[in-house]
Structures are given as C-alpha cells and as structure tokens.
Amino acid sequence: MQIQQTRPGGVAEAPAQLKLRGQASVQGKNKSRQPVAMDRHPNVARLERWALIGTAQQRIAHAQGGEQALGQVWGELKRLERQLSQTTSAGGEIVQRLRTLEEKLTSQDAPLTDALKPRLLNGAGSRVHYGVDHLELLTAKPTAERLVLAFPVSNSAVEVLIPAGAQGQEVIKRLDQALNKEQIQARMSEQGKLELSLPEAQRRKLDEPVLISGEGIRIPAGNPVPVKFKQHPGQLSLLGEGLGRGEIKQEQRRLHKLLGEIEQSVRELKQFRQKMVQQLDKVKSRSQSLKLDELEQLQSKLSSQLKDGGFAGTMAGLLAQANVSRQNVVALLA
C-alpha cells in the first residue's frame, strides 16, 4: 500500500484535488451535453413531422379504399341496371346479393356508411338511424304521459312529458329536446314514424335495449320495459326490399339516383387525395430549408387537420389555397 506524504501539520491535498477534478469533469460534461441537446431538438421535431406525414399518407390510403369500395357498388348497380332493363321482376338472388354487398362495405369499420357515403368525407358527422315498430308515441292520447328512457350503456336516463292531446311533430320536438343531452336526435320519417339517430361512436346506446318506464296509457307505471330499437336498413337493403316487393320502376329511380351520388363521391375523394398528395410532396421537398419555428407551425397545422378525420373541411381548405405561393409552406396546409 502506498501512503501519500504530507507536510508536517498540513492536510493532504489529494481529496481536494479529486473533488475539483470531479466538479470540472461534471461541468465539462454539462458543457459538452448542451450543444448535443440543442442539436437533437430539430431532429425530434423532424421525427414528429414525419410521423404526422405518415398519418396523412395513411388517410390517403383510406381514401383510396373508399374509392375502391364505391367502385364495387357502382359496378354492381350497373349490372343490376342491365338486368332490370331485361326483366319485369327481381328474384331472391338479387336481394341477397345486395344485402351481402352492404354488409361487406358498410359495417362499422368499413369504408362506406349505410347511405353509401365515404366514411372519411363524413368524418365525425356519420350518424346511425333507428326506428321502433311496437311503440307508438306520435298519436294523441286523452291524458298526459310521463316517460323515462334509461340507457344501460351510459348509465343515464332522460325524462319526457307528453301533454294530453299532443301528437306528431309536437311529440317529436319534446323527445328531441329531452334526448339532446344523449346526442340523440328525434325526427319523423317519410312514413310518418318516429326515427332516432345518433353518432356512430355512440351507437351502442340504441344497439342495446332501452329501458322505458313512466306513467300513462302507452307505458303504465311499474317495472321498466326493455324496448329494442331497430337500425334502419341501408340504401342497398332498401333497394333489394323494394325489388322483392315488385316495385321495379320505383327502385329503378332509386338506383339511378344512387349511381349519380356515387359518381359525385368518387370525384370528391379523388380530388381530395390528389390535392393532399401534392401538398405533402411540397412539404417534403422544402422541409430541409424550414426554420425550427416554421417546422413547429407546420406540425401544428398538419396535426389539427388530421384530428377527428375532418376530411370535408380539409378538402375545402386545400382547394381554396390552390394558388398560394410556394414560399410559405405553412400556408399550404392552412
């Protein structure tokens, strides 16, 4: 073992020197780390930007999927159009074919809604419609009634008071006001029946039985009665049902209308996709020349556009900005 020599009465300086060297070492490390952290900051921002661009590219791919789905429906309807021009009746095979196609392309995670609209263009505005056959609320009754509709899914309930003699639109208005807090709308269908709709994300509220209780003629006091609301059939199912009943002329008109709507939706999807691709290409080509604050603004703009899938508004914005100068990349996505 080596013992360090010291001066008489003195204190060994080695610990002090070690401490100083340690402090200097820490300070040196901190100094060396600072520029590294500053250098890394733009890299993090760049990674975040590319993640957003990747999300946009994924949405563009979804738009392509919507175009393909609309193409399948268009092809099937054109085939059906030719068949109907050669016959005065439609067999069960046609009805089943339409129903199968609807189940494939308009389910909850499919690219189209039951109205054959692209789910991307609808964004959060897509709604599901329901009716009920065995509960008549729109006819007048001689006494006032009180209804309580409980939704087990959300563990919530609403109360509706229907005055004596109220009917039709007056009852609809009261139901709509009461159900508003559940994001449910009440409307009268073309057939004069009660129709409820709600956002697709909330559809479980009406997919499962609703517990209805109250005081009156339609719902007497007592234990809640489970009532099952039935989702309305989609456009393809309605077309098939009409053909099955032999309403050829009427359903031919529906078919022609659907073909026109599908062609319009395809144009909108294609236009959106092309514009979005152009904007992303411009952003990529000029990303190296952007300053850090501009890069952060660009990320914020792109993130807000992709939020909630608001494709219709984004498309309108891009079309409006078609002639913007290339010098302001941020404004390209404003």
Results as ranks from 00 to 15, higher is better:
R40T: 09
R40N: 15
H41Q: 13
H41T: 12
P42D: 05
N43T: 11
N43K: 13
V44Y: 12
A45G: 02
A45Q: 13
A45S: 11
R46F: 08
R46M: 12
L47P: 00
E48Q: 15
E48I: 14
E48A: 15
E48P: 01
R49M: 14
R49Q: 12
R49V: 02
A51K: 12
A51G: 14
L52A: 07
L52N: 01
I53R: 04
I53T: 07
G54P: 11
T55F: 01
T55P: 00
T55R: 06
A56I: 03
A56E: 04
A56C: 03
Q57S: 08
Q57G: 03
Q57R: 12
Q57L: 08
Q57F: 00
R59S: 05
R59M: 06
R59T: 05
R59K: 08
R59G: 06
I60N: 04
I60Y: 00
A61P: 00
A61K: 07
A61H: 03
H62S: 09
A63C: 11
Q64G: 11
Q64P: 00
Q64E: 07
Q64L: 01
Q64H: 07
G65N: 11
G65F: 02
G66A: 12
G66P: 01
E67N: 14
E67S: 14
Q68F: 10
A69H: 06
A69C: 11
A69E: 05
A69M: 10
L70I: 12
L70F: 11
Q72F: 14
V73T: 10
V73E: 06
W74H: 15
W74P: 00
W74I: 05
G75A: 15
G75P: 00
G75Q: 15
G75Y: 07
E76Y: 04
E76C: 09
E76D: 10
L77G: 02
L77P: 00
K78H: 13
K78F: 09
L80N: 02
L80W: 04
L80C: 08
L80S: 05
L80D: 02
E81P: 02
E81V: 06
E81S: 15
R82M: 10
R82L: 12
Q83W: 07
Q83C: 00
L84F: 10
L84R: 10
S85Y: 07
S85Q: 14
Q86D: 13
T87S: 15
T87G: 05
T87R: 14
T87Q: 15
S89R: 12
S89E: 11
S89G: 04
A90P: 06
A90R: 04
A90H: 03
G91E: 01
G91S: 05
G91A: 04
G92I: 09
G92D: 11
E93L: 10
E93G: 07
I94L: 13
I94D: 01
I94V: 15
V95A: 11
V95G: 01
Q96V: 10
Q96N: 10
R97N: 09
R97D: 09
R99F: 03
T100Q: 11
L101G: 04
L101V: 08
E102L: 07
E102F: 05
E102K: 08
E102W: 03
E102Y: 08
E103L: 13
E103T: 12
E103Q: 15
E103A: 14
K104M: 09
K104C: 05
L105Q: 03
L105Y: 03
L105M: 10
T106N: 08
T106F: 07
T106Y: 05
